[in-house]
Design a protein around this nucleic acid. Structure first.
Lengths: 195, 195
DNA sequence: GTCTATAGGCAGATAGAC
DNA sequence: GTCTATCTGCCTATAGAC
């Protein structure tokens, strides 16, 4: 199918994605409508369908863009920080900054709705988690070799554990609107990896 | 308002709650309908409204019952297990058994939808988390005194951390339908509290 | 690219008979 | 307690004019 990239001007498509992204991260994929976006953007829902033929397609585009942006953040960490422990702290800060906006990690909230999502979105959520875990495992491996990190079990298992803990910390802290609840968990998590 | 408790026979109400509970834990509160329950129970949606006047009321009853059952499980742990570390393992097993049924913790999935929930349900979700954290903090305090557990930071912070980690481990593991992913995180979590 | 108009379905909820 | 019938509203999506 022709993606919106093939259409000349995609500033509108980007603005749609911006609004939809915020709505997904605050309300979940099934709990916002084309009407919500249309109202905010001051266009009609019919126009939205020109940019994204279906909500499923919009949803898939959302995850794709989100994962790409997150990947860029990880590359920036790799570029600017060499110490493994500092990398993990920067990683946790990515989550904290999302939570600061009263949002969940997009794939965290989609994981909660997983069984109601269209297949392509399900696969993309899994892909996001896999990418994160792979990156974390790499950081952990390096840290262990350089003796700046210490942990028992495999790097994969600990990577899984870090991802889960940060997602859970966001999930639980958000209803309280209390960033310090998140930070306490992140701090405890990282202190367990100190050498 | 007259709750369904005041009405003579509440076997039907209980069956409604059983079905709705499973639907919430697999799909989320906003992603199932009275029609779903009605079909499974072979009654009409109009009859459902006799037992629970509104979906909001049904949702509140769901959390209340879930929290009460969970509380009973905690009491049973307190009764049957004295070692603090073994209590935490039993606590993690509660989560594992929920996940085994492809379900999320009810309040975990409701936390993801938090901003779309009616006020009374929001308060009940917070209450569930508070209760769990309080119980965990008590276990941690005892374990620290008896030197069977060791951790840095306050018992409250570590309790918060345990709750968050287990909720997150469920959230992330469920799309993979892989219990071992959950277990790896739970094991890593508890190993960090060993003495 | 955006609009009006509308289709077709599903949601939660209520009235009133039995 | 359960039913039929119905209401109102919202949802995603499409046809076709501009």
């Amino acid at each position: 199918m022709a993606s919106q990239r093939t259409k000349g001007d995609n500033r509108t498509a980007d603005r749609i994605l911006d609004i939809a992204e915020r709505l997904v991260q605050t309300r979940g994929f099934n709990n916002f409508s084309y009407a919500d976006i249309a109202k905010e953007l001051r266009i009609t829902t019919a126009s939205l369908h020109y940019h994204f033929r279906s909500k499923a397609e919009l949803g898939h585009a959302l995850i794709t863009r989100y994962a790409a942006q997150f990947g860029e953040s990880l590359q920036r960490i790799d570029r600017e920080i060499s110490d493994a422990r500092a990398k993990l702290e920067a990683y946790a800060s990515l989550y904290a900054s999302v939570l600061k906006g009263r949002r969940m990690c997009m794939c965290g909230i989609l994981a909660a709705e997983y069984q109601t999502l269209p297949r392509p979105m399900q696969r993309a959520v899994i892909g996001f988690f896999d990418d994160n875990q792979r990156w974390l495992a790499g950081v952990l491996d390096n840290g262990q070799r350089e003796r700046t990190l210490a942990f028992s079990g495999s790097a994969d298992e600990v990577a899984q554990s870090i991802l889960s803990t940060l997602e859970g910390a966001m999930l639980v802290a958000r209803p309280y609107a209390d960033l310090s609840k998140f930070n306490a968990t992140a701090r405890h998590l990282l202190s367990g990896l100190a050498n």
